[in-house]
Design a binder for these strands. Structure first.
Length: 275
DNA sequence: GCGCAGGTAATCT
DNA sequence: AGATTACCTGCG
């Protein structure tokens, strides 16, 4: 079906490192596996997108997944004062949306992500899905259920390139199975409670917890600090980032800063850096 | 061959 | 509290 999504930047959202199963197939055309489904989205220009599903599925699944009910205009109304760097980041990355991903997939994916590059993370997640997930239409696989990863043989998990993270994944999956820590109950917790709960899982520290809070639970005050963001904070905000000024949209700003910092670095490498 | 990649946890000081 | 280090694996 065809749909208009004002200001949506499909390419940047796909490349933003939120989902590791969002891939470019050709210019303007992206595949996504999520929510036990596979989807193809094509940008047709002028804020129009073609989704490879019917209207019912779009309304029931993807409107929620892309959080299309949220107004990103607030971030522009808040203003940036004289913050030139933030202005540039917003100008570059506006249109990136925070996805509403499934809890277990997000948790495991970001446990796996530690000390790995994005391509390596993607390979891991695909391998886990192919081995332990159920087959979907189109020859891809759903992300595995907690039971499947709990019961998985260590050797099979290791074969997915998990390395020392094997026990993190196994133990976290086992905890989820044992405690029935379903997303509904976690969603009812406040930010502090949710963070505390997430930190109990082995392999989850402050950064991974922040990613899960933002990308699975839309906690917009969550501000994951990875090496890119740390670089930005160190270099651009030696006096400290004005967190209190941006309550309610910090997660979105983090994504903007993240995307912009990476683009800046890649542009620099190619000698195209504009000052 | 060495160092690092979107960190965490254990062990120092 | 803050700093240091091992940890799997693949790639430049």
């Amino acid at each position: 079906m065809r749909v208009q999504i004002k200001g949506f930047n499909l390419a940047l959202t796909a490349a933003s490192g939120q989902s590791f199963r969002f891939n470019q197939m050709s210019p303007g055309c992206f595949s996504l596996v999520a929510m036990n489904r596979s989807l193809v989205i094509s940008g047709l220009g002028e804020d129009t997108f073609e989704f490879s599903c019917g209207q019912e599925e779009f309304e029931q699944i993807w409107r929620h997944y892309f959080d299309l009910g949220r107004d990103y205009g607030e971030i522009h109304r808040l203003g940036t004062g004289s913050d030139r760097y933030l202005q540039k980041a917003i100008a570059y990355a506006a249109g990136v949306r925070i996805l509403r991903q499934e809890f277990f997939e997000t948790l495991i994916s970001f446990i796996v992500s530690q000390r790995k590059s994005i391509p390596a993370i993607k390979a891991c997640v695909e391998a886990l899905s192919a081995r332990f997930g159920t087959p979907l239409k189109g020859g891809c696989y759903a992300f595995p259920l907690p039971e499947a990863l709990m019961e998985a043989d260590e050797k099979d998990l290791a074969a997915c390139g998990l390395g020392y993270r094997v026990r993190y994944v196994q133990q976290t999956a086992a905890m989820i199975c044992r405690e029935g820590a379903d997303a509904y109950r976690l969603a009812a917790l406040d930010d502090r409670g949710l963070q505390a709960t997430l930190l109990r899982f082995p392999g989850v520290g402050v950064k991974v917890a922040a990613c899960v809070m933002l990308f699975a639970f839309q906690r917009m005050d969550s501000f994951p600090v990875d090496v890119w963001i740390k670089r930005v904070l160190d270099n651009e905000y030696p006096g400290g980032f004005p967190f209190e000024q941006y309550h309610g949209v910090l997660g979105i700003l983090q994504q903007y800063l993240f995307c912009y910092a990476r683009w800046e670095a890649s542009a620099g490498k190619q000698g195209k850096l504009v000052i």
